[in-house]
């Protein structure tokens, strides 16, 4: 029977939603699910994780206080061996992508990245070529490492009683050290968690287009703000607003693409959205091919009217 180890991701003292989606993916394979919380002083995270899985393992060590790939991979691999895990899971977030290939290398395990579906205990589907192709991959090793695209799986629901166990593993010194984290502060919901996302592109003509057009609409709808790669590259908005193959993958209930042409690489990051609205004055813009509703008009007229009437 499969034995799953799901690594918890957390920030600011709370569990990340991507971990709950990852638990759901593991449950689809079937078998025992163990939560793993790595860090220092993480008992409250373990308690939170314990609401979703029947067993939680904590590795608490000063050397793991910062989430650095080298020591974390060592801790995760050690627990996986100790528990006889067949599958080791993490959300396909920046952290999961950074750490998990090292875990796979340590265990000489095959790895499936950023999966969008579980076919069987060793076969998974995953987007490739910027989401233009869905590949079916089989992992042939006994131990499998998997990262999960959080938007493709519902979040696990709380319910179970849990056992929490502390495990000690020897962590080697590494030549990696944490210096600082410069958090992007925002009153808006996180892009990957938001119910509504408003994204802007080059049609906004400059950073003031985001301030004067996109932000008021986002305020009205309590939405997160996204952007095309072109405007991030141009420095109009922060890079972590970027939606697409090379940025964030989002799947909100409602997605507005404003003044955005819909390049393949952008569409790869938002086409899972439940309802897509495109506003663009170029009727040939490819974004209209993925939109549920389109308006062919000047965004500087349409968006203020929309704000007024909503």
């Amino acid at each position: 029977m499969s034995k799953h180890l799901v690594v918890a991701e957390y920030a600011g003292g709370s569990l990340h939603g991507s971990t709950l989606s990852t638990i759901t993916a593991a449950q689809k394979v079937g078998g025992d699910v163990i939560g793993l919380v790595v860090g220092q002083g993480v008992d409250s995270i373990a308690t939170e994780m314990g609401k979703y899985v029947p067993n939680v393992v904590i590795v608490d060590d000063a050397k793991l206080a910062n989430r650095l790939a080298q020591p974390w991979a060592q801790a995760i691999a050690a627990v996986a061996q100790n528990k006889g895990a067949t599958h080791i899971w993490h959300g396909a977030t920046t952290a999961g992508k950074d750490i998990m290939p090292r875990v796979a290398a340590r265990l000489e395990a095959g790895m499936a990245s950023d999966i969008s579906a579980v076919v069987s205990e060793n076969t998974f589907k995953r987007p490739m070529w910027a989401g233009n192709v869905i590949g079916t991959v089989e992992v042939t090793t006994d131990t499998k490492v998997v990262t999960v695209r959080p938007t493709e799986f519902d979040r696990a629901t709380a319910g179970s009683e849990t056992n929490i166990e502390k495990v000690e593993t020897a962590i080697d010194d590494s030549r990696m050290s944490f210096v600082s984290f410069d958090e992007v502060k925002s009153d808006r919901p996180a892009l990957t968690d938001a119910d509504v996302v408003i994204s802007g592109g080059r049609g906004l003509k400059g950073p003031e287009g985001f301030t004067n057009v996109i932000e008021p609409l986002a305020d009205k709808l309590g939405a997160a703000i996204g952007a095309s790669r072109a405007v991030c590259d141009a420095g109009w908005v922060p890079n972590d607003w970027q939606v697409g193959q090379t940025g964030k993958v989002v799947a909100p209930n409602l997605y507005f693409a404003v003044g955005l042409s819909g390049a393949i690489q952008h569409v790869a990051g938002m086409k899972g959205s439940k309802c897509i609205v495109a506003i663009n004055k170029d009727e040939e813009a490819p974004i209209f091919q993925v939109a549920d509703y389109g308006i062919v008009a000047d965004l500087f007229d349409v968006v203020p009217e929309l704000i007024e009437k909503l």
């Binding site: 920046t94 952290a95 050290s177 984290f181 972590d240």
Partner: peptide, 9 residues
Amino acid sequence: EADGGMETV
């Protein structure tokens, strides 16, 4: 480039 901000290592 990390989720939610910039990390220096």
